[in-house]
Design a protein around this nucleic acid. Structure first.
Lengths: 337, 337
DNA sequence: GCGCGCACTGAGAGCGCTCCTAGTCCATAC
DNA sequence: GTATGGACTAGGAGCGCTCTCAGTGCGCGC
């Protein structure tokens, strides 16, 4: 209203306009108590009339809070963008953060140079904390750097090698795998094979471990093949299994994409699903509904995972100790068992 | 070295340590002249010994520069992640920005709520400028808000409706389309059909316009069908064209994905490529190498596009007027002509 | 009528930088 | 010896917030 020629209005302008002090405006801005009704109304009016917007850097400088958190991704771009799980988590984390008035900054750290820059950025004070969604162990190599900088970090999935030092949220790999295997057994499948996920991920090792436990004496290395969670790797694994000429009447794939790949190969080979062989996956990814018949699988509730991750991170940013949360999974029966 | 118990070292700590003043440290930090060799060495030593890291918010407050730019995306998540062009641009923009010491902040603004938040964020002083990569016109609706906030903006592709007010970088749709059509004509194809891209994108309209011009009197609405750049839409368009029972001996698809979709349908229909019908695309996306035979297409040099976008944006941030750049395309001959 | 405490407000002191200006120092010119 | 100017430096004045704390005013109980 007054002599702020071209300049962006500051909190002082608002204060002057409203006839109160800076402090009062700040209190209104931050929803603090101890502000009279009349003062609040005046300030709100002044904010509107001046077109005042808070200056995030001044606030950050004063509070040493940035209001944004890094979403750190150490997968390759291609893998990230081809795996709908990542996308799902990204999206729901962004939403959950927005609920807390925080912004997600996506940070891709695939190449070495990118990782260097990412570490620099994250530990340089640009963010209040980080969500790390790197499945693979090697992606976690620089977790140490983040920890050393005392940056609050929450991991999606168990951060192999940092279980003790980093809070995390994970779906119940063990419980989910047990449940779906019990289902298979209950339906009379006795010779179950496993297409295991990468063993440098907690999902990969956890589900394999559960497989081993449930099968007990029936467990045999011959019926385990490995993939990398991609559809192609599922197909490859399936071919390998067929080539081994071990008998099996069910496939437990480490995720849905690999299950779908396996089903492609089974179809080529003229093997009927579920009549000859039952197939189950993990995740309940979109791919689970695109197979014929649709895939029976274990749902990972990514929305809840994301929500919890954000909750834990906010806790840790506020100085409360990091938690560890395991989210229960749920079996989704469709047509492949 | 001294009494900074737990506190992060500041520029003053460095100054004390180096036995110089704050001003000198700042000059060293910003690569300014007028610093003696000895002073510089002392400061660098002190920076190392104190473990000093610049505080980005203090700097931002003082300079009113943030060092980060928004990469604004108004496509749906799914479309974005399934179109490799976007991925390519994202990646090379991030690289190009890093060269300038700037960080890319990915901002997805698909839903209405997200767009509101994105506008808020972008105009709130969090970024120095924005790269807008929204192909579709409706995605540009809130360009007006950015412009009003005087935020430097550069668009990838011609920003329909804002051609005059916003700088942009685009591949040469007209030249590329003409060139590939001339190639088709030179090879004796006379009845060329066009699977046009969405008409609310500059690529879609530009390539269609070139098609119309090159064909001249031979142009016929009957030989134009529309898609949305997705593979499925290319297949759909191809089916429609077949259903129309117009004769054609070549297909010019608005992009490679649609070309691939069209080829799927042609194969189903038992039509040989290129013997019966030639097919050409646009982009030189990965999909172009996955068709059989591989696709003859027009390469869009996305690396150069990204580089130029960043260059223009940096220019505009520094107060130099926004430019408009058209990047020449190049024909890639493979096996479908 | 006085004191007390509750509700609310104002303003100074930072937060950690950069920018600017006045200044110092020293070699050279006269 | 003094003036001149180039090379370099110190430190004050912001940038626009939040936090803290000392006030102020007023109703209420005794």
């Amino acid at each position: 209203m007054t002599k702020l020629r071209g300049r962006r209005p500051t909190i002082d302008d608002v204060a002057t306009e409203a006839g109160v002090s800076r402090g009062t405006v700040s209190r209104v801005l931050n929803g603090s108590h101890w502000v009279s009704e009349t003062a609040r109304i005046q300030v709100e009016k002044a904010i509107k009339s001046t077109g005042y917007r808070i200056n995030p850097h001044a606030r950050s400088l004063a509070t040493s809070r940035t209001g944004s958190v890094g979403f750190l991704l150490t997968e390759s771009y291609e893998r990230f963008f081809s795996d709908p799980n990542f996308l799902h988590i990204l999206r729901s984390c962004a939403d959950a953060l927005a609920e807390h008035g925080m912004t997600l900054v996506l940070i891709m750290a695939d190449t070495l140079e990118e990782r260097r820059r990412a570490t620099e950025y994250l530990t340089g004070g640009h963010v209040d904390g980080a969500l790390v969604v790197s499945a693979h162990r090697d992606g976690q190599e620089f977790m140490a750097a983040l920890l050393e900088a005392r940056l609050p970090v929450i991991s999606a999935g168990i951060p192999l090698g940092f279980e003790e030092q980093v809070g995390y949220v994970t779906a119940d790999d063990d419980g989910g795998a047990r449940a779906i295997l019990e289902l298979l057994l209950a339906r009379g499948r006795t010779r179950i094979a496993h297409i295991a996920g990468p063993q440098d991920t907690s999902g990969g090792t956890g589900r394999l471990a559960a497989f081993r436990t449930v099968l007990g004496d029936d467990f045999s290395d011959e019926r385990v093949v490995y993939g990398d969670y991609s559809r192609e790797s599922g197909a490859r694994a399936m071919r390998e299994l067929l080539a081994r000429e071990v008998s099996f009447d069910a496939i437990f794939a480490g995720n849905d994409l690999m299950a779908a790949g396996a089903m492609d190969v089974l179809e080529e080979a003229g093997i009927q699903v579920p009549d000859d062989v039952a197939v189950v996956g993990f995740d309940d990814a979109p791919a689970a509904c695109e197979t014929v018949p649709q895939l029976t699988t274990v749902r990972q509730p990514f929305d809840r995972v994301s929500e919890e991750m954000v909750r834990l991170l906010v806790d840790e940013i506020n100085g409360r100790p990091a938690g560890r949360v395991v989210i229960p999974t749920e079996i989704v029966e469709r047509g492949t068992v």
